[in-house]
């Protein structure tokens, strides 16, 4: 089985969600290879889990002022601030049959690729069920998975640099809570690659690639014409109020 790899590209939140869904549809049809994709967010964005409420989780007004996108994901999980300079994101999209049947086991396997990638830049990380990766007990990566039409889609973040202040500005936390004490508390629970290594984003991505493709036959290839058409179609859905504010 040959895999497709798409190396680091930055897209808007709507494009990123559309690309994942377009690939997932084509993999389900058997017309695209299983795909590993590394990407960033431009502009910075907030994504919320598919069962969350946009109004409850996101400070929409502040996002608009700062030019930050906001989007609902296909996957469950929590709200995430994706800084344009501070995060490497991956998606892995492939037939379910290539992974363990159990959700927990498949999280463990795919998070293992991330852990291997972090190890390549000298960071000793471990899996923290249900869906996190930690270093010294602090979260460095969050991951979310869905399965549709026989296809497993998992995407996840690798925190590169942490901007807690910005995170608090766009995620809904009462003003009283945005105190030095709370920010310190977050820094006690969350960490990032730059706390351990001066590796560049591109070199981190190369190391992640090695972690993900270990033992796999792969080639670098871009989205095909059908996928690009689907991305254009889906973009409007992911921008729509109907989708983003459905809960």
């Amino acid at each position: 089985m040959k895999w497709r790899v798409i190396m680091l590209e930055k897209h808007s939140a709507y494009e990123n969600m559309s690309i994942d869904e377009a690939i997932s549809n084509r993999v389900a049809e058997g017309t695209s290879k299983p795909t590993i994709r590394f990407y960033g967010w431009s502009p910075s964005a907030v994504s919320i889990g598919c069962f969350q409420s946009m109004d409850e989780e996101v400070n929409i007004e502040r996002c608009k002022e700062l030019g930050i996108d906001y989007v609902r994901r296909l996957t469950g999980g929590g709200a995430v601030y994706h800084d344009t300079e501070g995060e490497l994101t991956y998606s892995i999209i492939a037939p379910e049959s290539l992974f363990p049947k159990g959700i927990h086991e498949s999280y463990r396997e795919i998070c293992g690729y991330v852990i291997k990638g972090l190890s390549g830049v000298g960071i000793n990380a471990s899996f923290a069920p249900i869906n996190d990766i930690v270093v010294d007990g602090k979260k460095i990566s969050g991951n979310a998975q869905t399965r549709r039409g026989g296809v497993l889609l998992q995407h996840g973040t690798i925190l590169y640099k942490l901007d807690v202040k910005k995170m608090f500005e766009v995620l809904k936390v009462s003003k009283e809570k945005i105190s030095d004490k709370v920010i310190k508390n977050v820094e006690d629970r969350v960490t990032c690659v730059s706390n351990f290594s001066d590796v560049s984003m591109n070199d981190l991505c190369e190391s992640m690639l090695r972690g993900f493709v270990d033992g796999k036959d792969y080639e670098f290839e871009n989205l095909n014409a059908e996928e690009l058409n689907k991305v254009n179609e889906l973009g409007d859905t992911y921008k729509s109020t109907e989708w983003n504010f459905r809960r």
Partner: peptide, 15 residues
């Protein structure tokens, strides 16, 4: 009733 949160459920539409 509306059930919300940061949990996971497959298939998602079943909620």
């Amino acid at each position: 009733v509306e059930i919300l949160g940061d949990f996971f459920m497959h298939p998602e539409e079943a909620l």
